[in-house]
Simulated scan of single mutants.
Amino acid sequence: MKLLIVEDNKLLLDSLKTILETEYTVDTADNGEDGMFFAEQNIYDLIILDVMLPYVNGFDIVKQIRKEKIKTPVLFLTAKDALEDRVKGLEYGGDDYLVKPFQTPELQARIKALLRRSGSLDLDEGIKYKGIVLTGKENDVLINEVPIKLTIKQYDLLEYLIQNNGKIVTKEQIFDRIWGFDSDTTIAIVEVFIHQIRKKLEPFDFHKDIQTVRGVGYILKDY
């Protein structure tokens, strides 16, 4: 699971990253302009978004990504607790609203609730596609109830494909999601890992479900 936190309070931003990266991969931005850029990549399972940000405020970020048909759940995290602000945030396309100061367990519970609601997290905290089950525990994978060993990156890529099954994901989206914007490798690594996962799935005849969309990327769907 990959989260984006957009918060201009450096201490809070670092604290949230430290807390959440024990369970998730976390990207951060400390201003609205960078936050907008990251959010528009459409590679996150959840965005935690402050309202009062330099350059572009949180409301405008949500309005823009919703115009672009990006459905990533958004949790507003802000000191603005007036009813009209909460209503405004939800009307613009936010999914939940948590007012500062807050307790860490509440934040974690809100995150899991939004991930479950969006389908990124199943009730047993795993995700499934046909006979493939990703449990989320130490990168365990079961295929037709047979345990399969994947590397962390292989697991993350298969998870991303399953979360978006039936949808085309571009090579750029996969690269940014799995390796990150600051990676010193190249986008060619995506093809290498797709090949590796197909080999893992081949004994179970699921490898054909990872279909290449020529010149664009890949889609996971029934072959």
Rank of each mutant, 00 (worst) to 15 (best):
K2E: 12
K2Q: 14
I5G: 09
K10V: 13
L12K: 06
L13E: 06
S15F: 08
S15I: 06
L16I: 10
K17V: 11
I19W: 06
E21G: 01
E23M: 07
D27L: 05
T28I: 14
D34W: 01
D34M: 13
F37Y: 08
I43K: 05
Y44K: 10
D45F: 01
L46R: 07
I47Q: 00
I47D: 02
I47R: 04
I48L: 15
I48R: 07
I48M: 12
M52Y: 03
M52W: 00
L53G: 10
P54E: 01
V56F: 00
G58M: 04
F59K: 10
K63G: 05
Q64F: 04
K67S: 08
K69N: 15
K69V: 08
K69A: 14
I70D: 08
P73Y: 02
V74W: 05
A79E: 11
K80D: 00
K80H: 00
A82K: 13
A82S: 14
E84C: 02
E84D: 06
R86Y: 05
K88F: 09
L90C: 07
L90S: 05
E91H: 13
E91D: 14
Y92L: 14
D96C: 14
D96P: 14
L98P: 02
L98Y: 00
P101I: 08
F102Q: 03
F102S: 02
Q103L: 15
T104P: 07
P105W: 06
E106L: 11
L107P: 12
A109E: 13
R110V: 07
R110P: 11
K112P: 02
K112G: 02
A113H: 05
L115Y: 01
S118A: 15
G119V: 00
G119R: 01
D122Y: 03
L123N: 09
D124F: 10
I127P: 08
Y129M: 02
K130V: 03
I132Q: 10
I132E: 07
I132S: 13
L134T: 06
E138P: 01
V141I: 08
E145H: 14
E145N: 15
E145P: 09
I148V: 15
L150R: 01
Y155R: 03
L157M: 13
L158H: 12
L161S: 06
I162L: 09
G166C: 05
G166R: 05
K167I: 05
T170V: 08
Q173S: 01
Q173D: 06
I174Y: 05
I174R: 09
D176M: 12
I178Q: 01
G180E: 09
G180K: 05
D182N: 14
S183I: 00
D184P: 07
T185F: 01
T186Y: 09
E191W: 08
V192R: 13
I194N: 00
H195T: 11
R198G: 06
L201M: 01
P203G: 12
F204I: 12
F206Y: 15
F206A: 04
D209S: 03
D209Q: 01
D209F: 00
I210N: 03
Q211Y: 00
V213T: 10
R214C: 03
R214W: 09
V216Q: 15
V216L: 15
V216D: 11
G217E: 01
G217A: 08
I219W: 03
L220V: 03
K221C: 04
D222C: 11
D222V: 08
Y223W: 10
